[in-house]
Design a protein around this nucleic acid. Structure first.
Length: 277
DNA sequence: AGCTACTCCTGGTAGC
DNA sequence: TGCTACCAGGAGTAGC
């Protein structure tokens, strides 16, 4: 599912084509994609604006808008499970599952989403919308001491904590499982009981895995995630535990176990990830 | 504060 | 073949 690496890839590929484009209008085919906003509100807010910046925060794609050089809010897009954002050459995109089309002065930006969980909406003040999100794990500002401090502040199981976007922004089910495996930490271990060495392992596991996954343009293990260019990512080839139930752990050959933690499937190696401490 | 359950959705697939 | 039941999951919310 689109997590930080997939969203970052989407942003990097769309940015050069979107910068400076003018939005002419919005065609909404599934209202709930707007998350409570009306199609008229969206169209009115974005019509005539120019795309000034394209960036990512957590799993959100941010298109900063301007009107005659003045800031004019932003379009926020969250791909959730099956969302895709890509450019089409014409205004009329007839592909199945298209939920919103933004017509530009050149071509259009299409939001396609099979399961309809994704969101695309106008936000006047993205900074305050993002205020409660946790730090960006790949930011230069995010150092191991930050992670340690945040972990000690919560008596919570590691797996659900890593999925909590107010704790750390950008991890989802896949990269949380992979990070815990690389760090040798049990998904049910308590955050406030980790040793200094364990915190350091978790920090470098998260950073290295996300960095590698961005380099590989994310992971495409099903038919859903594709880059805006239509290509699959390749990080799925590096999975050590995710989706590998009963297969041999690449580190120790012990069978990978799958359990439910807070209704989420969780994959780990009982040999490499002991519930110690 | 942290937990669990539930909701939103569709299409693929397992089982009969 | 054709049917039904179930499953995946990010994030928001409610209730304990």
């Amino acid at each position: 599912m689109p997590e930080l690496p997939e969203v970052e890839t989407t942003v990097r590929q769309l940015r050069p084509a979107l910068l400076g484009r003018r939005i002419r209008g919005a065609d909404v085919r599934w209202r709930r994609t707007l998350g409570g906003q009306s199609p008229a509100e969206l169209a009115q807010a974005v019509r005539g604006t120019r795309i000034l910046k394209v960036w990512r925060r957590a799993k959100y794609i941010v298109l900063e808008l301007g009107r005659r050089r003045n800031p004019a809010g932003a379009l926020l897009c969250h791909l959730r499970m099956t969302g895709r954002l890509y450019l089409a050459s014409s205004d009329i995109e007839s592909a199945q599952h298209v939920r919103v089309t933004l017509s530009l002065d050149r071509g259009s930006l299409v939001f396609l989403d099979v399961r309809k969980f994704g969101r695309l909406f106008y936000c006047a003040d993205p900074a305050s919308y993002f205020a409660s999100l946790g730090p960006e794990p790949l930011s230069d500002d995010f150092v191991v001491a930050d992670l340690g401090q945040r972990l000690r502040a919560h008596h919570r199981r590691l797996k659900p904590l890593l999925l909590d976007q107010t704790f750390l922004a950008g991890l989802g089910n896949i990269y949380a499982d992979e990070s815990l495996h690389r760090a040798g930490l049990h998904p049910l271990a308590y955050a406030d009981q980790l040793s200094v060495a364990a915190v350091e392992r978790l920090y470098s596991a998260i950073r290295s895995i996300l960095t590698e996954a961005v380099q590989r343009e994310g992971a495409s293990f099903d038919r859903f995630y594709r880059t805006p260019a239509g290509q699959p990512g390749s990080y799925q080839d590096q999975f050590q535990v995710y989706g590998r139930k009963n297969q041999a752990c690449p580190s120790c050959t012990h069978p990978i176990r799958r359990v439910l933690v807070g209704q989420r499937s969780t994959h780990y190696c009982p040999q490499c990830q002991k519930a110690r401490r």
